[in-house]
């Protein structure tokens, strides 16, 4: 009997928590609207107007299409920078993950250090990294590349560590027990076990980095982001729109491609 009562009490508590959370959310939304004097009705009313303006100005015209070669070249630059940042970061992240993962770490201290550095890199947003490097390197491709690299490195180190612990722990244990050296264990047991996951994470990061690279490019004055910024500020909206359309097309293309690749690998 007591257990039934306990179960009921547990459910009542859970309902109370749900209700309280909802109330809190409502208060937060309302409160922040008031503080920022956010005007909901006029915001909603402005939607139709914004869309008709978009329809009128954001259709690429002949002038925009004439810019196509320039846009495509910048787009290629952005894609290449993203791929490069991902590949280099992945190589380093894999080494760090081997030092950091519970399964393969040579020493707990190394593991702690790796985790600290990785979480620092990961938790500072890429745009913030770009701003930091902007101060020291100025507006150039290196700045954007570095920012993407650092963010990717942080994220992948964490992802790879989890992958190693998940898919290689048991075979590593077996090879340790047989007296196999560290490097051989890594190459023979860890690498083949984690390869598909590692490739999948890298594809994911390439996608993410192309999106981030656009934003970072606005800051660093490079790549496709720079071109968008240029057209937008010179009120050449139809060319800016064309840039956006190209970005969307590339992102969709890359995502479709990497999904197809993923199906083959996994």
């Amino acid at each position: 009997m007591t257990s039934i009562i306990e179960v009921r009490r547990m459910f009542r508590r859970r309902e109370a928590i749900a209700l309280a959370s909802f109330a809190l959310l409502a208060v937060l939304t309302l409160g922040s609207s008031i503080i920022t004097s956010f005007d909901w009705p006029s915001c909603l009313r402005s939607f139709p107007k914004a869309f008709s303006w978009l329809a009128a100005n954001f259709i690429p015209n002949g002038k925009a299409l004439a810019n196509a070669p320039k846009i495509l070249a910048r787009l290629a630059e952005t894609v290449l920078v993203s791929v490069m940042a991902t590949v280099v970061a992945a190589a380093l992240a894999f080494l760090m993950a081997l030092l950091g993962s519970k399964t393969t770490r040579p020493h707990p201290v190394a593991s702690g250090l790796v985790r600290l550095v990785a979480s620092l890199c990961r938790n500072i947003p890429v745009v913030a990294w770009a701003m930091i490097f902007l101060l020291s390197f100025g507006q150039n491709v290196l700045t954007g590349l570095l920012a993407l690299f650092i963010g990717t490195f942080g994220f992948l180190t964490r992802a790879f560590m989890e992958t190693v612990d998940e898919s290689a722990e048991s075979s590593v244990e077996a090879l340790w027990a047989s007296g196999a050296p560290w490097a051989a264990t890594v190459m023979q047991a860890v690498v083949p076990s984690v390869m598909p996951q590692v490739a999948s994470w890298m594809l994911y990061m390439v996608e993410t980095n192309i999106r981030d690279a656009t934003l970072v490019g606005i800051l660093t004055g490079t790549g496709i982001g720079f071109l968008f910024d240029l057209y937008y500020k010179s009120l050449n909206f139809s060319s800016a729109a064309f840039v956006v359309i190209c970005i969307v097309a590339v992102v969709i293309l890359i995502e479709a491609g990497s999904n197809a690749l993923r199906r083959v690998i996994l």
């Binding site: 047989s178 007296g179 051989a184 264990t185 190459m187 023979q188």
Partner: peptide, 12 residues
Amino acid sequence: LGYKSTLQGSFG
């Protein structure tokens, strides 16, 4: 693997 050099072991 326990009997092999690191290099031979690593590359199987």
